[in-house]
Design a binder for these strands. Structure first.
Lengths: 191, 191
DNA sequence: TTTAAATGCAACACTGCTGCCGCAGTTACG
DNA sequence: CGTAACTGCGGCAGCAGTGTTGCATTTAAA
């Protein structure tokens, strides 16, 4: 494939990500417009709308997987890993409501990575929620909301970064029952 | 208007709520099908698709407003009010992702009611988040996720009810900074 | 029972999107 | 430079959804 063709493919995926995040049912014309290309070119790279969507989901899943890998989800301290993953994802500006809204959803690898992360958080006593689906749902859901916050939102400013706000919110939401102030490695109960 | 016509209108709204919750772009044919009516009948009650959507949003907003009123958001203890509102909403099986997804979103009254609720929670020291948009976003977002949980989800069983799980999760998520175990009316720090 | 209203059915035109094609102009790469 | 690939443009048919209409039938209500 020629170099400019490859560029076009990338631009299409980029445009699709941006446009579909705002309106999931956006037309290929709109996507082609955003990419600065003709609609026919989109059809030349992707046989059908579905093919484009599939490619987009795969690309996003690869980014998720890479983020999980970079954050060393399996080995790093779990809270740090959670914040690190969030940070990378926000840098990538991944548009979650779109990806999650698709039938394909996350790949098994990504799914497993997130589940591992929350299993480790639970084992470390940082959260008490036991359902992996519930943990994933809360995480991705709050990620979307944090992503939509304006830059000058007070809570965002207070937390310092989107990743920090998301991390605190997720941990708080999943720290359900039990003594509200004690984690399992509790060594600061008198301040 | 004749009685059966009124029934039809109600069935259409009911069907629309159910169908659009699953697929926001569902056709009027699909909605009419679900309602057990002909598509033409839908058009007789609602001049356009947009008119149906508007009516649906208004209906749902009325239910929200009523729920906020019933829970005495302005006067009852805020945590109890939060759980009470959630309980009523879950009983109504209101389909949030659809309502929230619409441009119209919530009515000013509902918006104000929710903001009041979280302002009181903040004043009572139950949460520390200061942005009302952030509070509302977290609440509605988690409400959707709790709504989608299967009946036998472990965290749901542990919490006792959807309303209880949602309440704990929301409060946890919005209790961001500061000492993790002390509320402002803190009188139990040594057990 | 009588009457007006509501519905079901089956068309119809219109719109927007998709997928495809050919042609001419442009661009990358040997 | 020359060729092959890529792109833009425009048009085409097909399809799904919307909005409307007419007519026969059913149903609520006086």
């Amino acid at each position: 494939m020629r170099a400019d063709a490859e560029r076009s493919t990338a631009r299409i995926l980029e445009a699709a990500e941006a446009v579909l995040a705002v309106h999931a049912g956006a037309s290929l014309e709109r996507i082609a417009d955003e990419a600065g290309l003709a609609r026919a070119t989109v059809h030349r790279r992707f046989a059908s709308r579905q093919a484009l969507l599939d490619a987009l989901v795969e690309q996003l899943n690869q980014r998720y997987a890479r983020a999980l890998e970079q954050a060393r989800v399996a080995t790093a301290p779990p809270v740090a890993a959670l914040e690190h993953v969030s940070e990378i994802v926000f840098e990538l500006k991944i548009t979650h409501p779109f990806v999650i809204g698709l039938d394909a959803e996350q790949s098994p690898e990504v799914r497993a990575g997130i589940e591992l992360l929350f299993a480790r958080l639970r084992h470390a006593g940082e959260i008490t929620a036991s359902g992996s689906d519930w943990c994933r749902a809360v995480y991705l859901s709050l990620m979307t909301e944090v992503h939509l916050l304006p830059d000058d939102a007070p809570d965002l400013v207070a937390a310092g970064s989107r990743a920090a706000l998301l991390t605190k919110a997720v941990l708080g939401a999943l720290r359900l029952a039990g003594p509200p102030c004690s984690t399992r490695n509790d060594d600061r109960h008198s301040g």
